[in-house]
């Protein structure tokens, strides 16, 4: 081997090609099949896409770096299932670009936090976590309540997702901004359109408690309340396993 290597060491281009060849194998073997093997992602016919408001909330979650302390991936371990709920399935993050499984739990997992607390609790908690959980070390996010949500480019966000494969319709894209307003204002005339487009189970509420304004708080709470609720696949899998 040293003799062969002695030759290789004399050629810069040869060395470059050898490094690329040797290093490419692992990634190719592990990643490429994930796109071709069908069972990698389960079938879930009831899986829905994020509404424009929830997507905007997700982007705020990313912007504020929430993923650094909160995971969204319940592992197949007894204590995790008992603490957080049914273990996460691949299909549940099918439309997540990028995924937010996380790698650290300074705070608890959020994969199934949707519906666990009231909107008012979330608003109070985000405003100052220590008001509701005295020992918490989470930062305050007071500015979310003050900042108006930017909606003028939401249609483009949906269109980008559609280009990458999410089943947004033309109607959803054209009405993105209007749907965002309507989802946080149940009394608006367009509120019915949101449930019609995204499903009857969609939360249509004044998430931050003030229907007159559409804030970043509305968006983030709407996102938190839908975590783990886009499909029932994980719950039905858990039930069928129990039986």
């Amino acid at each position: 081997m040293p003799r062969f290597h002695r030759k290789l060491e004399r050629s810069a281009i040869g060395f470059v090609l050898a490094i690329i060849g040797v290093s490419a194998i692992g990634g190719l073997v592990e990643i490429a099949p994930l796109f071709t093997i069908h069972e990698t992602v389960e079938e879930a016919p009831d899986m829905r896409v994020y509404t424009p408001l929830e997507l905007a909330g997700r982007n705020i979650y990313i912007r504020e770096g929430c993923y650094a302390c909160h995971s969204q991936m319940i592992r197949t371990l007894r204590d995790e299932v008992e603490r957080y709920g049914p273990f996460s399935l691949a299909v549940e993050s099918q439309y997540d670009r990028p995924m937010l499984w996380g790698s650290k739990r300074t705070g608890p997992d959020l994969a199934r936090v949707g519906g666990k607390y009231s909107d008012a609790w979330h608003v109070a908690h985000l405003f100052n976590p220590r008001d509701v959980v005295p020992q918490s070390v989470m930062p305050r996010y007071g500015w979310l309540q003050r900042n108006e949500l930017r909606v003028n480019d939401l249609g483009r966000h949906l269109a980008a997702h559609r280009a990458l494969g999410a089943p947004y319709t033309e109607e959803m894209i054209t009405n993105a901004a209007q749907d965002a307003y309507a989802q946080a204002n149940p009394d608006s005339p367009n509120a019915g359109d949101v449930s019609q487009r995204y499903g009857a189970a969609t939360n249509v509420r004044a998430f931050d408690g003030d229907a007159s304004r559409l804030t970043e708080m509305d968006a983030l709470v709407a996102y938190l309340q839908v975590l783990g609720r886009l499909t029932d696949a994980a719950r039905t899998t858990a039930t069928s396993r129990a039986e």
Binding site: I31, L34, Y95, R97, W101, A160, L164
Partner: peptide, 10 residues
């Protein structure tokens, strides 16, 4: 938005 999503992105 990432070209990869969910499990492949992970």
């Amino acid at each position: 938005y990432s070209l990869f999503s969910g499990v492949q992105d992970a």
